[in-house]
Amino acid sequence: MQSDDPTAAVIGMDDAELNDLLTLLGTEEFQITRPPRSGLTMMTVTDSLGIDFHLGEVLTTEAEVVLGGERGYGLIVGEEPRKALVRAAADALLRAGRPIELCRQVRERLGLARQRQVAKFAEDAALTASTRVNFDLMPGG
């Protein structure tokens, strides 16, 4: 799952990582403009003939905050109110770009979480790769 958005690392965070980030962000005065609420995001896909259709709905949680006039948005697959709020806060903070030191720390935490997730994906990929077929041609074929 490639993303340029550093806050995407919140998606796969475990409880410890999330608590850590929440504590960091808690030092700022965020205004929660939309408390986390669950709802449905209709998933649209493009079929192999280039036609878009709706595959079905995905349970998601969204939240919105404001920090220093900057709106932050958080949307996460699943019933994840804390993650949605943390992601919205990180989004607002990183776009506001200050306090600089806090931004650096938040980026660092997000980076570490991302690294752990990438390593997990690599482990899954290695297991999948072990099931790749190597065909042997039969004699006389």
Binding site: M1, R37, S38, G39, L40, T41, M42, M43, T44, V45, T46, S48, D52, H54, E57, V58, L59, T60, E62, L75, F121, D124, T128, T131
Partner: peptide, 23 residues
Amino acid sequence: YRATQPRLGYSLPVNTEEMRIVR
């Protein structure tokens, strides 16, 4: 259950070529 939930929105169309394959 889905009938009790608000529709937050529609996703952008996803192309399955970018699937992270497990099989």
